[in-house]
């Protein structure tokens, strides 16, 4: 899932990411045993860890013991504000947010996924460049509205039926090849993304590579807990791309939602 290295290469996203990353490392080495987990995330760690530990202990199996251990380490993390994993990964979510837009280097979730679509790059580029199409295959998005030549307003689904919103702008684009965007200041969730379209050899379609970075509410622990409930960002982006391919190639998303089964209520034709 989230990779440590900056997934956005070349010109795509935050040009200062590398510099910020090395600054973080310098700071962290000075404060290796100190607080490196943000306040909200500490609460989530403590509560989520408690729940996991309890659940694990009641299961009584080997897996249950493992869950209880993870739960225990989350409680430790919540109460002390120190996370060994973050330390090892050079991550610190305790520092205040900077004024900079989008996701700072070495922070949050970074996912890179690719898919080959059996359509010309120009067609895929055109479809994606109209951001209002994105919710058709990105299931975590509720809507995207174009608000200007390079600007758009995004509404995404959040846990418990709530939504998070942000404005984004295109920061780099090359016709039929590349689109890169990032959220603007005051976003509920800082995020940035890019998509590249590259013709595969010998008429084998177009390789589509997507990079997304975002800083979910609750930081990395939020994502770790989300993962336990099946909403791993990594898998989510993979499924988004699969649906993009289905829409572009087959014209529709394969589904069985709403089909008959012996599990549903009965009624005859």
């Amino acid at each position: 899932m989230a990779t440590k290295e900056n997934v956005i290469r070349e010109t795509a996203l935050t040009p200062t990411a590398g510099t910020r990353g090395s600054m973080n490392r310098a700071e962290d080495s000075r404060n290796s045993q100190s607080t490196n987990v943000g306040q909200t995330e500490r609460y989530i760690s403590a509560i989520g860890g408690g729940a996991l530990a309890l659940y694990g202990l009641t299961r009584g199996s080997l897996g249950g013991v493992a869950l209880a251990l993870i739960g225990g380490s989350l409680i430790y993390r919540g109460t002390t504000g120190h996370c060994n994993v973050y330390e090892a990964m050079d991550v610190n979510t305790a520092r205040g947010k900077s004024g900079a837009a989008s996701v700072a280097g070495n922070r949050g979730i970074k996912v890179e996924k690719s898919v080959t679509v059996n359509r010309p790059a120009a067609e895929l580029y055109r479809y994606w460049r109209n951001f209002e199409n994105l919710p058709k295959f990105m299931d975590h998005l509720e809507s995207v509205r174009t608000t200007g030549e390079k600007r758009s307003h995004w509404v995404a689904k959040a846990p418990a039926g709530t939504t998070v919103e942000w404005d984004a702008e295109i920061i780099n684009e090359k016709e039929n090849e590349l689109i890169a965007w990032r959220s603007l200041e005051n976003a509920d969730v800082d995020n940035a993304g890019s998509v590249r379209f590259q013709e595969a050899p010998a008429g084998r379609g177009t390789e589509v590579r997507v990079s997304l970075e975002y800083d979910p509410p609750g930081g990395m622990v939020g994502a770790a807990i989300a993962k336990l409930f099946g909403e791993a960002p990594d898998q989510q982006i993979q499924e988004d791309l699969r649906r993009f391919k289905q829409v572009m190639e087959a014209g529709e998303r394969a589904t069985t939602e709403g089909q008959a089964s012996g599990r549903s209520a009965t009624s005859g034709r």
Binding site: E252, R253, E257, G258, A260, G262, A265, T266, S267, G268
Partner: peptide, 14 residues
């Protein structure tokens, strides 16, 4: 077992 279940519906345009 043979069950009484809802009839299938068109879910996609194809």
């Amino acid at each position: 077992s043979v069950e009484n279940v809802p009839d299938p519906k068109i879910l996609n345009s194809r």
